[in-house]
Simulated assay, not measured.
Amino acid sequence: MTGPKSIISTLQRHGALWPLVALGLIWLVIIIVNPGFFAFTIQDGRVFGGVIDIFNRGAPVALIAIGMSLVIATGGIDLSVGAVMAIAGAVAANLIVGTDLPVPLIILAGLGAGLAAGLLNGTLVAGFGIQPIVATLILLVAGRGVAQLLNDGQIITFQNEAFAFVGVGTLLGLPMPVWLVLFVLAAMLLITRRTALGLFIEAVGANASASHYAGVPVRAIKLTVYAIAGLCAALAGLVATADIQGADANNVGLWIELDAILAVVIGGTSLMGGRYSLVLAVVGALIIQSLNTAVVLSGIPPKFNLVIKSAVIVAVLMLQSPVAQAQLASLRRRFTA
C-alpha cells in the first residue's frame, strides 16, 4: 500500500518535492489573503478562477521553460528567447495588417521565424563552437532590432478574431494558452521519452566529449534543442501578440528569459547540464506566476515585489541544494533514530 512516506520519498527521488512544497505554500498564502481566489465559476462556456488565471498568465514562461530545459540540459543557455518572441510577434502582426494570408499560414510564418532564430543560435553554438551565452546574447541584442525594423519602429495593432483566439480564445472551457502549454509539454515528453533524443540530450549535457566518442551526434543534438527553444519562444510570442492584438517590439517578452531560466532551475535542472524535467520546469513557471500573484494580492507596495520574489526563489533553490539535502537527511535520521 502506498503511504504518505512512500509518496514523499518518490517525489524527493524525482526532485519534485520542494518545487511542489513551494507552490503549495505560495497558494496557501494566496488563500489567506484572498479566500475566494480559488473559487471557480462558469460563464459563457468558460471556466473562470484564480488557478485558471495563474495557468493562463504563466503560459508564455511555461512554453519557453520547456524549450529552455532542453537547452540547459545540454549544458547551454538561451538568452535570446524574449527577442525571438518579439520577432515572431512582429512577423505575425505585419502579415495580418499587410496581407490577406489565412491565419494558419500566419502562425506558421511566426513559428518559422522562431525556428530560423533557433537554428541560428544552434549553428553558432554547435557549428562554430561559440559559447552559448555569447552566441545567444548576439540575438538578444539584434533580435529586438530586427523586430523594430519589421515594425518600422512603431507598435503594430490589428483586429483579427481568428488570430486573437490563440491568446484569448477558449477551448472546452479552458483558455487556449493553457491548452498550448499542455500540448507542447505532451509532445516534448513523447519525443524525448519515447525516442532516443532525451537520452542523447542527457548524455551530451553530462559529457559531450564522451558522447561524441560513443557515437552520439553531439552537434545535431545541440542544433535540435536550440531549434526547439526557438519554436517554443515563437509560440509564446504569438500568444502574447494575440493577447493584446498588437506587436510591441520593445516590450513583448522583455526579460522573460530570466524567468524561464529560473523556472527551469527551480524545477531541478542543473545549469551544468545532464538530467532535466520538463514537467517540473512548468511547475517552476507556475511558482513564478503564483508568486507574482501572491505579492499583488497581499497589497505589498510594488517597489518590494522583485525583492520578495528573489528571496523566495533563493530559498527554494537553497532547499534543493546538495548541502541542504544532506543536512535535512541528517536531521531526519536524528529524529527517527
Rank of each mutant, 00 (worst) to 15 (best):
A116E: 06
T99Y: 03
A59N: 09
A135E: 04
S80L: 05
A92Y: 03
I87V: 15
I133H: 14
A116I: 14
I156C: 08
G89T: 06
N94W: 09
L120Y: 08
V84G: 01
I66S: 09
L124D: 02
A126S: 15
A147M: 13
L95S: 01
A86K: 00
A142G: 11
V134E: 13
V84Y: 00
A126C: 10
I87C: 06
L137D: 00
L139G: 00
N151W: 07
S80D: 08
A117T: 02
G75C: 14
N94G: 15
Q131T: 13
R144A: 04
L124F: 00
I130G: 10
A109G: 05
G122W: 03
A126E: 02
R57F: 12
G143Q: 00
I87L: 11
A126F: 03
A92R: 12
N94V: 11
I133R: 07
L115K: 04
D78S: 05
L105D: 14
G76K: 00
G153D: 09
L120S: 05
M85P: 05
L149G: 15
A142H: 04
V146C: 09
G118C: 04
A93V: 08
A117L: 04
S80N: 05
L95N: 03
V103S: 12
R144L: 07
A117M: 15
Q148P: 11
P35M: 02
L101Y: 06
A86L: 07
F48K: 10
V97G: 09
I64W: 01
T99F: 06
F40W: 14
A62V: 04
I52N: 11
A117I: 12
L119G: 09
A65P: 07
A86S: 09
T136Q: 04
Q43L: 15
L115F: 05
M85V: 03
T157S: 12
L105Q: 12
T99N: 10
A59Y: 03
I156E: 08
I72A: 00
L63M: 15
G145D: 08
R46T: 14
P132G: 11
F55N: 06
G145R: 03
V146N: 13
N151T: 10
S80C: 01
D78G: 04
F40K: 09
L139H: 00
I77F: 04
L149Y: 15
L101S: 11
I155N: 12
G122Q: 11
N34I: 10
A88D: 05
G122Y: 01
L101V: 04
P132V: 06
I130R: 08
G67R: 02
D100N: 11
G127W: 01
L137Q: 00
V61G: 12
G110N: 07
S69H: 01
T157C: 10
T74I: 07
G67K: 01
L150Y: 01
V125S: 00
I66D: 05
A86Y: 01
N151M: 12
N34C: 12
L137T: 01
P132M: 15
I156A: 10
G89N: 06
V71M: 01
D53R: 14
V51M: 10
I42D: 07
L79Y: 02
V134L: 10
